[in-house]
Amino acid sequence: MEKVKLGTSNLNVSPIGLGTMAFGRWITEADSDAILTHAVNSGINLIDTADYYGPGQDEKPAYGDGTSETIIGNWLSHNPGARSKIVLATKVGSNTNPVMSNPTLSREHIRQQIDSSLERLQTDHIDLYQAHLFDNGTPLAETLTTLSDLVDEGKIRYYGVSNYSEYQLKLALGIIKDRRLNPLTSLQNRYNILSNHDDSAVLKLAQRSHVGFLAYSPLARGVLTGKYLNGAMPANSRAAQGEPLIKEYFNDADKKAVSKLKTISDDSGISMSQLAFAGVLSIPGITTALLGASKVSYIDDAIKAAELQLPQSVLTQMKSL
């Protein structure tokens, strides 16, 4: 796959990235290793994780134990040539304490977590370190200054933010400019053909500001593959395993949209998942779509989607979903 520049950084990333939220949560370490190996061998170089990802996400209160980072770190240690081939991204700011549900992006917390992430990932630097969500309890300037300082110290190469609204991104960009901090490299937000109206304003701001955009959940947590059509509930699917975030897509409007996508797929001969991926990647300003693969075969399907040039007639139909 042809690589594209992420924002104004020197990071060249694949249009399909590998999201690892399920590593150690629903996917064993052995299967995670196979997915990582196949992804990198297939040309995917952006590996995205978080200090929050792991089985603790399904507890109450939800917390992260860094299992996903640990699995990736173990894989890197067994594949010593892989580190130089990948852009390693992780996040900070979601709850990592099983007895506390009040995450923070304070200077103290970030500095604790960066060292823990580096240890779990078995690396001396992180290519892209991202604030996982906006923290209303910490001054934004404190968060951004800390991230910028980590760039100067060499612990991270670049930093980004995730799950930011247009207003929040505008605030961040203003602080970075006023304080002459290292620039913001990327924004990672949900973006798919069911939810794109929610993020169109912040995407346009990111594009105008030369901030790269990483789109997570391009398949709407598997809904856009068609696996849940007509009320189906496949065994071992995210919905069957009780993921709460998928429930928001089980509404009448989205069900109708998925049915329409199935018709477009049948008429065009392009799979629903490939249409969903290609549709996201066709939108100006989106750098990379993140695939949460649970099987090696899903990687091949996503790569095919990245190479598609959808006919204008198909794009027009998809915009009407």
Rank of each mutant, 00 (worst) to 15 (best):
A206I: 01
A239D: 10
V223W: 11
W26V: 06
S268V: 10
S68A: 14
K155L: 13
D124T: 13
Y63L: 04
T123S: 14
P311Q: 06
V202C: 04
V314T: 13
L121I: 01
P244W: 13
Q312S: 14
N41W: 09
L219W: 13
L133A: 14
T28E: 14
D152H: 12
V161F: 06
L184P: 00
M272S: 10
M272W: 08
V211I: 12
A302E: 03
L261R: 07
S265R: 10
S265L: 12
F23I: 00
S217R: 09
E119I: 12
H38Y: 14
L308G: 00
I176Y: 03
R179E: 14
I71C: 05
P284N: 07
G242M: 05
A62R: 11
L203H: 08
V92K: 01
L194S: 03
S77A: 15
E59Y: 09
Y249Q: 08
T49M: 06
S116C: 11
I264E: 10
Y167I: 12
A39K: 07
L281S: 02
V4F: 12
V151R: 08
L184F: 01
T288C: 12
A240W: 11
N136M: 11
I299T: 02
R179G: 00
G73I: 07
R25S: 14
A240Y: 12
G231K: 15
T287F: 09
Q188W: 00
L147S: 01
I283C: 08
D266G: 09
M318G: 03
L219A: 08
I283T: 15
L118A: 07
V296E: 08
S268P: 06
A22Q: 15
S9F: 01
P284L: 03
V92I: 05
A30F: 07
T67P: 06
N10I: 02
N41S: 12
G66M: 04
L321V: 05
L140W: 01
D31Y: 02
V87P: 02
S271H: 02
A253E: 15
L281R: 05
K91T: 00
K256A: 15
G73F: 10
D267R: 15
L203N: 09
V161K: 03
A306V: 00
S32A: 14
M272I: 10
V223R: 14
I72H: 09
V211W: 04
P103Q: 02
I303S: 00
I27H: 10
D301V: 04
I156M: 06
S165M: 03
A172S: 12
A30Y: 04
L11F: 04
E69D: 11
L281V: 01
G154C: 04
F277N: 07
G242V: 03
N41V: 02
Q188I: 00
P218E: 08
